[in-house]
C-alpha cells in the first residue's frame, strides 16, 4: 500500500503544551473577568485577582511561545503588526495583550480606573470567548460545533472561580454554585446536541465516547457536584478545577 506509512500524514498539531494553553487561557480570561466584574460592582479587594490574571496571561503567552514550532523564528511579532477580525487567534492575541496591560495597570493603579475597568471587562470577555471561537470555526471538525463557543467561556470562568475558591480563599459563594452548575449542565447538554446533529457530529461524539466516555462523564459530574458543595468552597473549587480542565482537554484533543 502506497499510503505514507499507512496512516494519515497530518498528525494532530495541538497536544501537550497546547492543552496547558487551553487551561491557562481559561484561567486568565476568567480571572480578569472576575476582577473586572468586582470592580464594576464596586467591590474592591480584587488586586490579587488582577495580579493573578496578569500572571496567567503572562504564563499563557510564555506557553504559547514555547509550544510554537516557530518560537525561534520570532514570527510572532506578526500577530501584533496586524489585526485580522476573521481570525480568532488574532482576537486572542490582542485580547491577551490588552488584558495583561490593563490588569497590571489596574493592579498598580496606573491610569483612570473608569476607563480601564470597562476595557478590562471587554478584553477579558475576548480572552474567555476566543478559544471557543477558534474551535467552532472549523468546518471539518464536527465535535467542535457551535455549542463549544458557549462551553469554552463557561468552563473558563469555572476554572477561575474554582481557582479563586481554592487558592485565594475568595468570598464568592454566591457566584460559584451557579457557574459550576451551568457549566456542568452545559457539559451534559453538549453531547445531547451532538447526538441530534448530523452524521459527522454523531460520529465525532461516538469517537469520544468510545475512547474516553468515562472521563467525559466524570468531568461533567465533577462540575455538577461542585455546584452542590456550598459549605466547602475549597472542595467545590477543587472538583470544578479538575472537571473543567478535563472537559476542555477532552474537547480539544478529540475534536482534532
Amino acid at each position: 500500500m502506497t499510503s505514507f506509512y499507512g496512516i494519515h500524514p497530518s498528525a494532530e498539531v495541538w497536544h501537550g503544551l497546547t492543552l496547558l494553553h487551553f487551561f491557562l487561557v481559561g484561567l486568565a480570561g476568567g480571572s480578569a473577568f472576575l476582577a473586572a466584574l468586582s470592580r464594576l460592582r464596586g467591590e474592591g479587594a480584587s488586586r490579587n485577582l488582577l495580579l493573578f490574571a496578569a500572571l496567567f496571561v503572562a504564563l499563557d503567552l510564555a506557553v504559547l511561545w514555547l509550544e510554537s514550532p516557530a518560537r525561534f523564528r520570532f514570527t510572532h511579532v506578526w500577530l501584533f503588526a496586524t489585526f485580522r477580525p476573521a481570525s480568532a487567534i488574532s482576537w486572542g492575541a490582542w485580547g491577551l495583550l490588552l488584558t495583561l496591560l490593563l490588569s497590571l495597570a489596574l493592579a498598580f493603579r496606573k491610569g483612570p480606573e473608569r476607563i480601564l475597568v470597562p476595557l478590562l471587562f471587554a478584553s477579558s470577555l475576548v480572552v474567555l470567548a476566543y478559544p471557543g471561537m477558534l474551535l467552532s470555526e472549523n468546518p471539518g471538525r464536527p465535535l467542535w460545533d457551535g455549542f463549544v463557543t458557549g462551553l469554552m467561556p463557561l468552563t473558563g470562568l469555572a476554572l477561575a472561580v474554582a481557582f479563586w475558591l481554592v487558592f485565594l480563599r475568595g468570598s464568592l459563594p454566591r457566584l460559584a454554585p451557579p457557574v459550576f452548575l451551568t457549566a456542568g449542565v452545559a457539559a451534559l447538554l453538549y453531547p445531547w446536541g451532538l447526538l441530534h446533529g448530523d452524521a459527522g457530529e454523531r460520529a465525532a461524539w461516538a469517537g469520544l465516547w468510545q475512547d474516553a466516555g468515562l472521563f467525559y462523564l466524570a468531568a461533567a459530574l465533577l462540575l455538577l457536584l461542585a455546584g452542590f458543595f456550598r459549605r466547602r468552597p475549597e472542595l467545590a473549587g477543587g472538583l470544578a478545577l479538575l472537571g473543567s480542565t478535563l472537559l476542555r482537554s477532552l474537547i480539544v484533543v478529540f475534536g482534532q
Partner: peptide, 26 residues
C-alpha cells in the same frame, strides 16, 4: 513561511487534513 507562527489554526481548519507542520517551524 516567514509570516507563519505555526499556531496550527489552519491545520485544524482544513477539513481535508492537507496541512502539516514542517520541521523548520512553519
Amino acid at each position: 513561511p516567514t509570516k507563519c507562527i505555526a499556531c496550527g489554526a489552519c491545520v485544524v481548519a482544513c477539513p481535508y487534513d492537507s496541512r502539516f507542520l514542517h520541521p523548520d517551524g512553519h
